[in-house]
Structure formats: structure tokens, C-alpha cells
Design a protein around this nucleic acid. Structure first.
Length: 818
RNA sequence: GCCGAAGUGGCGGAAGUGGUAGACGCGACAGUCUCAAAAACUGUUGGAGAGCAAUCUCCGUGUCGGUUCGAGUCCGACCUUCGGCACCA
């Protein structure tokens, strides 16, 4: 009897050996196909919980598989280290964000090493270190030079009591999470990136192997609409603007306009408000400033608005149109003004009903007899009550109205996007400082590249209230102008952390390079990423920003590719007691104790098995012990020795060996395919079935020693990516050469994997009546004959007439009778 | 609210293109071993019903309807749960 499986004794040993041998360190190698397998790097929150393992382990298994297939695999790891929680810890517990972050990294690195992954730790990147954020700042300068960075006013969440800017997360139902004060919007000058310049390209995913749903989400995020901009003329005493432009996707409905709505933030609003309405309208604007965009756009909420007391004129029919303001119109979309066509837009309909505005029909629904509409008709139709355009279909009407607008100079065809420019300014300490200086004489001056990095001052004060600590740090703020050397002030905002994560995958190619963010030939070798894995919560923001970054760099000539991630895969979430893990619920599963008890290999295999990776599943201790039992059985199966039974005849032995070869080759084929297609849970099932089959073979002693050894060897190779320590140990104990992880992935032979017999299902009228075992080579006529010979089938054919027979080779025969 | 997913035994899940529903595992039950228990091993296990029995019949993939010889899979409507919504990352 072999000594039992004891993961504690083997896992640490092999991890040390692999590290000593630098088994997983990689360099560029033109003789092998490169494979860049990237997992989204973790935020430095403190502890690695089982959810992190769920992101890392299957990705590592796949990377190991590619490595055994002969690829030169880069599988790096690093830390997303700037961000709000570090600053909160500073305020709450008086610990410096740098200290807090680096302590967390030390702990997380230790935990990550216990996974037994093939991370090349010599390439680790940490975004909060000056060596890294120097280049984050450098990219800001490049984008600024390229005209992709600009300054503009934008609202922030403002708590008047704390005198501070709040993240959306810190606003709970419109109140400050700390002090309960009502949160308002406040306009600040902030930095933006012109991501909208790339809107059209970002909608395209040509040649990318991405989940369809993510591509759809990104396209919807861009939200491209074709339509027209129409100028309604304005003649208001004391206002110089002579028109208000609206964007509409339905220029064919322009004759049905009965009101215009301006966003509460619209710059003309204040100038147009009639004196007797001013108080009311201003109160309304104030109220809407407290609402989030989500609330404002909710179609279920009752539409509320205010008449401004001014009018514009519809250029197409000369009608006077009252101007309203309502917060369902956003300043960030289109022109911040919409034309109200109640008959043909649901929101406008509800609005007009509430305020008793007329609802003239200008697009006739099918069979319309001139009656009033009970609800908005938003489908295309035939234009009516539309002057010269009457009788046109919506489709040709849109073109005709656009032509007419352009001819008269009243408007033009236009495209509008839901996508907004990327606001990167954060009024916080723990981020990369924006490398800009404000000089009274020269204005906005970028910090020269040679002066990078703009270091974060270490001695900033973390008051529980106030703005960015950088504002109160004179030695940081006060500087001299790089251009004219006059006294100047530094920008005190730091950059959005999405900025750090928009290029980290480039840094892994040459993490220590000092002359530039990356070394060109190494970048050319490794990039783009072949398989990027991470949570679906990043479907739009992180993935979108990273794509924008790479496209901008390509246009600057810095990189030669336009897409960072060739294949994308999103894993699901591990839940506990049907709930998402969170510190506040107190249901966070720490993997350390499970690793100590059952071993990293068992935890790895369990996470692979628990559910389809993209779906996620429930953490369950007893499921884990089931996996542990399997690995234990496998250990004994391999080490206990094998005795071929003496009583087995030569013919039976040959037959048993043929069967074993068939199962071995079928398993190899299945496991390979499942790894390729990222279907890890069924891959583990296949390995379990293979183990069970081998256990039966062993009990019977039905095959020869060589056949047995060959199948065991294949089993270990197939197991190696999932349970790397166990496979290495068994490999060594069987006397094979170190290391199993340098072996070639097994191949299969289709001829040997082929089944000799199949089960043919016999149905009558689609109901299963019998099954028969037939040779795979059976032809249709033979199958039909066998079916008629089946007593069970005959029972259902009595007194019936056969109408049809449907034969699916190798699957079934369905006899349709009457 | 809008956008995007997912609903299959007591539980996690399996069934690449419509063709044996419930693989594999957990749990439960029974047995072997033991003074006993744990561990391990063996067997049974979707529900209802019939039969001494091998076995047989019917019902079953969130709900309702449709297409088809045949639907977990395709189509339509609805219900529930989950992810994102631009300063959590």
C-alpha cells in the first residue's frame, strides 16, 4: 500500500524547485509560437479571496495547457495599486496609502504564489510605483500633444458639509455616506480624453474573438444614432443667440413638434427664463442637480418639467413652439435640447399629456382615420399634416426633410453618440499626478518628459475633510513654469485609475525598461494579448478605455497594432450561500485555510469543476472534499502498482487493450477540445470518468503492463495543468524525467479513438420505444430491418400505417405512423 | 428605468450544429470492514403508478402559447435572479 496523498508535503517542495529552476521565466524565442495569456490584475484590496482564485486558476490551467502544446507562454501578474480604498484607509486608520498598499501587495503576492501558477514574477508591475506611473504620466503628455486631452467644466458630486468631492459609490440615495448631507453637483474644470473621436472604430470588433454579448454591450455603450440637427429660430430680447439646435433621429416627425425641452444645464436656459418664472425654474434646476442620470432617464418615473416662458419657431411650418426644461433631457447627449413630438415619442407623449400640450399626428399608423392617439406611435408610417412632405414614407421622408433642411440652411444630417469623452481628473491624492503646470503668463504648460515623474509628495496630510490633499501641500503645488521659469502652480488632480490599467499589458513585455514605457521589439514579439480573462463587470469601461488607448498609440506610431486583446473570456462570480461575497456580509472565503488543509491542487480542481467558468457557481465545502477524494483515489491508482490478471486469455486481453486505447484516445481528444474551448468543468468530468475506468481495468487486470503504463502516463499529462504539483510528484515517482511541465501535450489518433458500436434509438411517433446496439458501419436499410424486428417497436406498429421513417445515422430511427 | 445575461433532480451541473434529458460530482439511503464510530470501499438514487420478478406505463428542463416526425435546445409573450450604467475597481 502506497503512502497516502499528502499535498502539504509536495506542494511547497515543487513550488520552491520550480522557482529555483526559473522554470516559468520566459524570454522572446522566435522558434516557438508566442502565447500571451493575461488575467486582469487585482486591485490591492488586502486579501486574496476565493473569487480572485476563480479568476486566476482556470486562466493558469489554460496557460499551462498552451505551454505544454509547445507555445512560449507569457503569463504575468501585477497589481492595480492606486485608488480610493487606500485613501479611505488613510483617513480612517491613519495609515499612509503607500504603506497600506504595499502591505497588501506583500500579502497578496504570498497568496498568489500558493496557487502554483506559472507567473513569471520577474515581470511584476505595480502601478503606484514611480517607475510605473512615470509612464502613465508620459502617456498623458502624448495624448495631450496629439490633441486628445483637453480641459472642460464638468459636474462632480459635492458634499457641502465635508467640503469634498465624492465618488458615486460614496453617494447613498443622494446623501453623503459619511455625514448624510444632501449631495449636489458642482462644476469644476477637469481633464478629458477625446475617446469620442474613436467612437466609430470602437464599435467595430472585426477579427476579435470576443463574446457576442460583450461586443453588443460595447456597441450599445457607443450608441450611435443617425439623424439630423435642426435649428429652431430664436428671437428673444437681450439674447444674442438666434437659434437653438436640436438633434433628432426622426426628422420625419418635425411637423409634429409642439414643444421644445432644454436640459436643466443648458447654457441658454438662464437667459430665456421669464422673470415671473425664474424662482420656480431655478428651484427645478436645483432639484434636478441632485438626481443621477439613471434616475433622470428612468422611463417609469413621471415626467416633470417647467415652462420657461420663451418660444422658438419651427422653421418648417413657422409655428411658435414653447420652450420647457425637463431633466429627462441630458446636456451630455446630442445638443442638450430636444424637440417634443408627443404623437411619436413615448416620453414626449407622457410629457404632453401631463401638461396638456397638443398631440398632432404627423405619421399615420396603419389604418389611421384621423382619430386621437391613445399612445405614442413610434413605428415608421406615412407622413401626414406635414405640408409638402405629405404622403412620403418615414424612410424617404427622413431623407427629403434632411435635403430640404440642408438646402434652406436650417439644419443638416448629423450623427450623435451616447458615448461621452473620458473624464480622467480625480480630486484625490492616491493616483498619478497629472503632469501639467499652470503659469500666469504661459497658461497651461505640460511638464517636459525629462522632468517625469511628477512625484506624489510623501508627507501629504489626510484630513477627513477637504479637497485633494495635494492642494494643501505647498511644496508640491508651488513650482516654476517649465517654459518661462516664473512661479507657477501644479495641477493637483490625479488621474483616474483606469488610466493605469489602460496600458499595463504593454509594460509586461519589458517591465524594467527605463528609456520608454516599452521596448519596441519586445512589444512586437508579445503583443497583442492572445487570451485576456477577467470579470464581465469590465465589459464597457476598462476594456473600452484600453482599446481606445491602443488605438491612440497606434495613430501616434507608437505601436503597430490596433486592438490589445485578441480573444476575450469573462468568468462568472463565485457566490456563497446564494450571495455575492463581501466583507460587509461577512461571507468572504479565504483560500489559505483550504490550501493548508486539502492542498492548492484540490482547490484548483474544485474551481475548475464547480460550474462553467463563464457562469460562476456556489462555493461548497463538501464539493471540494469530493474533488479531494478523487485526487486521493488517483494517487493510489497510480502508485499502488498494477498486476495483469493471469487468467485473462490472449484474445480477451487484446480486446481489453483495444478498449483501453479507445478510452485513452477519446479522453485525450475530449480534454484537449474542452481546454481549447474553455469548458473546464466537463474536462474534469472526463478526467474523473477516465480515472473510474482505469480503476475497473486495474481490478480486472485485463490489460498488459505496457498498456496500463501508457494510459497512466497520459492521465498524468492531461492532469498536469489542473493539478501541477500532484502530477509532478507522481511523474517523478514513476521514474519519468523532470519536469512533467516541460513535456509535450499528448496527441490522439482518430482511428484508435473511433467507436466500434453505437446505440441506435428507435422511436415511434417521436417517443422512445427501444434501443439497439449496432456496429457504427450499419446502413439505413439494415437499421430499418432491425427496428421492425424489435418486439417493443412492433407493439406500437400494430394496426397502424407507416407514413414516414426518419433516419439519423448513428443516432436514431423514428417511425411515424397513423 | 435602460443595456446585457441566466433559469434543468434534494444540491452544483451534463446534453458542440433540434434527435437516448439528468454525464460527472455532492448529499441521502443501504451494505462491507469495525466492539462502535470515523475514514475507505460497493450498490441504489428525477417524480408518480403497476407487477413476486427481470420489467413496464405515464409525467417531467421558470410560466403560457407556437413551429416540427421530434424542442432543455428554435420563435413569441410573461415571471424571477444576476452583471453594467461613465468618480468602486
Amino acid at each position: 500500500m502506497a503512502v497516502g496523498y499528502n499535498p502539504q508535503q509536495i506542494e511547497g517542495k515543487w513550488q520552491r524547485r520550480w522557482a529555483e529552476d526559473k522554470l516559468y521565466q520566459v524570454t522572446e524565442d522566435d522558434t516557438r509560437r508566442k502565447w500571451y495569456a493575461l488575467t486582469m490584475f487585482p486591485y490591492t484590496s488586502g486579501d486574496l479571496h476565493i473569487g480572485h482564485w476563480y479568476a486566476m486558476v482556470p486562466a493558469d490551467v489554460h496557460a499551462r495547457f498552451k505551454r505544454m502544446q509547445g507555445c512560449n507562454v507569457l503569463h504575468p501578474m501585477g497589481f492595480d495599486a492606486f485608488g480610493l480604498p487606500a485613501e479611505n484607509a488613510a483617513i480612517k486608520r491613519g495609515i499612509h496609502p503607500f504603506t497600506w498598499t504595499m502591505q497588501n501587495i506583500a500579502n497578496m503576492r504570498r497568496q498568489l504564489k500558493s496557487i502554483g501558477a506559472i507567473y513569471d514574477w520577474s515581470r511584476e508591475v505595480i502601478t503606484c510605483l514611480p517607475e510605473y506611473y512615470k509612464w502613465t504620466q508620459w502617456f498623458f503628455l502624448k495624448l495631450y500633444e496629439a490633441g486628445l486631452a483637453y480641459r472642460d467644466k464638468a459636474p462632480v458630486n459635492w458634499c457641502a458639509n465635508c467640503q469634498t468631492v465624492l465618488a458615486n459609490e460614496q453617494v447613498v440615495n443622494g446623501f453623503c455616506e459619511r455625514c448624510g448631507t444632501v449631495v449636489t453637483r458642482r462644476d469644476l474644470a477637469q481633464w478629458f480624453f477625446r475617446i469620442t473621436r474613436y467612437a466609430d472604430e470602437l464599435r467595430q470588433h472585426d477579427g476579435l474573438d470576443w463574446p457576442e454579448r460583450i461586443k453588443i454591450m460595447q456597441r450599445n455603450w457607443v450608441g450611435k444614432s443617425l439623424g439630423a440637427e435642426i435649428a429652431f429660430s430664436l428671437d428673444h430680447p437681450g439674447v444674442s443667440e438666434k437659434e437653438i439646435r436640436v438633434f433628432t433621429t426622426r426628422p420625419d416627425t418635425v411637423f409634429g413638434v409642439t414643444f421644445m425641452v432644454l436640459a436643466p444645464e443648458h447654457p441658454l436656459l438662464a437667459k430665456l427664463v421669464a422673470p415671473e418664472r425664474r424662482a420656480e425654474v431655478e428651484a427645478y434646476i436645483e432639484r434636478s442637480r441632485r438626481r443621477t442620470d439613471i434616475e433622470r432617464l428612468a422611463t417609469e418615473r413621471e415626467k416633470e418639467g417647467m415652462f420657461v416662458g420663451a418660444y422658438v419657431v419651427n422653421p418648417l411650418n413657422g409655428e411658435k413652439v414653447p420652450i420647457w426644461t425637463a431633466d429627462y433631457v441630458l446636456m451630455s447627449y446630442g445638443t442638450g435640447a430636444v424637440m417634443g413630438v408627443p404623437a411619436h415619442d413615448e416620453r414626449d407623449f407622457a410629457f404632453a399629456k401631463k401638461y396638456s400640450l397638443p398631440i398632432p399626428v404627423v405619421i399615420a399608423p396603419p389604418g389611421w382615420q384621423g382619430e386621437e392617439l391613445k399612445e405614442a406611435y413610434t413605428e415608421p408610417g406615412v407622413m401626414v399634416n406635414s405640408g409638402r412632405f405629405n404622403g412620403l414614407s418615414s424612410e424617404s421622408g427622413i431623407a427629403a426633410v434632411c435635403d430640404y433642411l440642408e438646402e434652406k440652411g436650417w439644419g443638416k444630417r448629423a450623427v450623435s453618440y451616447r458615448l461621452r469623452d473620458w473624464l480622467i481628473s480625480r480630486q484625490r491624492y492616491w493616483g498619478a499626478p497629472i503632469p501639467i503646470v499652470y503659469c500666469e503668463r504661459c497658461g497651461i504648460v505640460p511638464v517636459p518628459e525629462s522632468s517625469l515623474p511628477v512625484l506624489l509628495p510623501e508627507n501629504a496630510e489626510f484630513k477627513p475633510t477637504g479637497e485633494s490633499p495635494l492642494k494643501y501641500c505647498p511644496e508640491f503645488v508651488n513650482t516654476t513654469c517649465p517654459r518661462c521659469s516664473a512661479p507657477a502652480r501644479r495641477e493637483t488632480d490625479t488621474m483616474d485609475t483606469f488610466m493605469c490599467s489602460s496600458w499595463y499589458f504593454l509594460r509586461y513585455a519589458s517591465p524594467d525598461y527605463e528609456a520608454a514605457p516599452f521596448e519596441a521589439d519586445k512589444l512586437d514579439y508579445w503583443l497583442p494579448v492572445d487570451l485576456y480573462t477577467g470579470g464581465a463587470e469590465h465589459a464597457v469601461m476598462h476594456l473600452f478605455y484600453a482599446r481606445f488607448f491602443v488605438k491612440a498609440l497606434r495613430d501616434m506610431g507608437l505601436v503597430s497594432f490596433g486592438e490589445p486583446f485578441q480573444r476575450l473570456f469573462n468568468q462568472g462570480v463565485i457566490i456563497v450561500e446564494r450571495q455575492k461575497m463581501s466583507k460587509s456580509r461577512g461571507n468572504v472565503i479565504n483560500p489559505d485555510e483550504y490550501v493548508a488543509e486539502l492542498g492548492a491542487d484540490a482547490v484548483r480542481a474544485y474551481l475548475m469543476f464547480v460550474a462553467p467558468w463563464e457562469q460562476g457557481g456556489e462555493w461548497d465545502d463538501s464539493g471540494l472534499s469530493g474533488i479531494s477524494r478523487w485526487l486521493n483515489r488517483l494517487w493510489h491508482l497510480v502508485l499502488e502498482g498494477y498486476d495483469p490478471g493471469e487468467a485473462v486469455g490472449a484474445e480477451a486481453r487484446a480486446e481489453a487493450e483495444r478498449a483501453l486505447a479507445r478510452i485513452t484516445h477519446q479522453t485525450t481528444r475530449k480534454v484537449t477540445g474542452d481546454l481549447e474551448r474553455i469548458r473546464f468543468n466537463v474536462m474534469i468530468s472526463a478526467l474523473m470518468e477516465f480515472t473510474n475506468y482505469l480503476a475497473k481495468v486495474k481490478e480486472a487486470g485485463s490489460v498488459g503492463k505496457d498498456a496500463w503504463a501508457g494510459s497512466i502516463r497520459t492521465l498524468l499529462l492531461l492532469l498536469a495543468p489542473t493539478a501541477p504539483h500532484l502530477a509532478e510528484e507522481l511523474w517523478q515517482r514513476l521514474g519519468y524525467d523532470y519536469s512533467i511541465h516541460n513535456q509535450r501535450w499528448p496527441e490522439w489518433d482518430e482511428a484508435l479513438a473511433k467507436d466500434e458500436e453505437v446505440t441506435l434509438v428507435l422511436q415511434v411517433n417521436g417517443k422512445l420505444r427501444d434501443r439497439i446496439t449496432v456496429p457504427v458501419s450499419i446502413i439505413e436499410e439494415e437499421a430499418k430491418e432491425l427496428a421492425r424486428g424489435s418486439k417493443k417497436v412492433q407493439l406500437y406498429l400494430e394496426d397502424k400505417r407507416i407514413i414516414r421513417e426518419i433516419y439519423v445515422p448513428g443516432k436514431l430511427l423514428n417511425i411515424v405512423v397513423k
